[in-house]
């Protein structure tokens, strides 16, 4: 058993243990409790629901790793979606060409990136607490979005947009493919790029990173900009899935993304964490909600159980680390 744990930790990293145990537990419990759980239908529903929450979690991830947080992600996604919708509507609406759609995507990415960059600049140059800056940014973006839409929906997009939310390619849902590409990009960014290295370093000690010659302000601005761009991708997927944009859509995901990240072993104080355990944690959360759905319960019970799962995982970490101190081993 001990050697198994050591091999597991060596291969996948110690932070993978929590999500994997949770994954196995969920598969076993629902596999036994609901006979139609282990089926393509479950896979399908998970595969289509995962990307929205997943992309927003990726947007939350980088700020969390720097020891910050980005509370404006959902409204940044809405606003980016609005930018895309505006471009589509002003260039033909349902008849807009593919070129216009490309332009719309660029508009969304620029909007998300700009919102993120503004947040990043405010945090980097005033050293205000990221919770406060992004919280007020959230309130501002929500207000701006509601002002622009007057609280209503924006809809009426070309037909070819829908497959981005609903279609499949090689038997895999397109949104899932987009999400997996983003996970891969984030993984490479964190493990191999200078920015990834730097953002982890400033996560555990900003000043020490500064003294070692890392450009901490630039890193913070880039982190929030990338977070905003990821929000924009989520916004485009949401636009395609619902064939409309409404400010407030996905709002309930905000705190779930934080939960998914912590469940995936992200250090709450920043500086440590990887993408893959978070990916597994996201799958666990979706499986939990799909499983409950199959058994006739609604999303709200799943939300409550997500919270319980989080507490169980965090408490288990506390107990394990206490046990290790007790037996004199270094964590």
């Amino acid at each position: 058993m001990k050697t198994f744990i050591q091999t597991f930790n060596a291969r996948f990293g110690a932070d993978m243990a929590g999500p994997v145990v949770a994954f196995i537990a969920v598969m076993v419990i629902f596999g036994l409790a609901a006979d139609n759980f282990l089926s393509m239908a479950t896979f399908g529903s998970v595969a289509f629901q995962l990307p929205e929450l997943g992309l927003l979690t990726l947007a939350m991830l980088l700020p969390l790793l720097t020891g910050g947080i980005n509370l404006s992600i959902t409204f940044a996604a809405n606003l980016s979606g609005l930018a895309a919708a505006w471009v589509l509507q002003s260039h033909g609406g349902v008849d807009a060409s593919a070129g216009v759609f490309a332009l719309a995507c660029v508009a969304a990415l620029v909007t998300g990136g700009a919102a993120g960059a503004l947040t990043g600049v405010a945090i980097a140059y005033t050293r205000a607490h990221p919770i406060l800056v992004t919280l007020s940014m959230m309130i501002f973006l929500r207000g701006l979005g509601e002002f622009l839409t007057r609280g209503g929906d924006v809809s009426g997009f070309p037909d070819y947009v829908a497959p981005i939310g609903h279609g499949s390619l090689f038997g895999l849902p397109i949104p899932l493919l987009i999400f997996i590409v983003c996970v891969a990009v984030w993984h490479v960014l964190l493990t191999r790029s200078k920015l990834g290295f730097g953002l982890l370093m400033i996560g555990s000690n900003m000043e020490a990173a500064d003294y070692s010659g890392l450009n901490t302000r630039k890193i913070v601005v880039l982190v929030y900009t990338l977070s905003g761009i990821m929000c924009a991708i989520a916004g485009i997927i949401m636009l395609a899935r619902f064939n409309s944009v409404r400010v407030g859509h996905g709002e309930s995901y905000l705190l779930i993304t934080v939960l998914a990240a912590f469940l995936g072993g992200i250090n709450p104080f920043g500086g440590f964490g990887r993408v893959l355990p978070v990916f597994v944690a996201l799958i666990v959360l979706q499986l939990l909600s799909s499983g409950l759905n199959l058994m006739g319960a609604n999303q709200h019970l799943a939300t409550a159980l997500w919270g319980v799962l989080m507490i169980v995982v965090m408490a288990a970490r506390t107990i394990v680390s206490k046990f290790r101190i007790f037996t004199g081993k270094k964590v």
């Binding site: 912590f262 019970l301 919270g307 319980v308 507490i311 965090m314």
Partner: peptide
Amino acid sequence: IVATISTFNIFFGL
């Protein structure tokens, strides 16, 4: 923050 985000979900979900 982690504990209260969890209880936020638990309270509201239930």
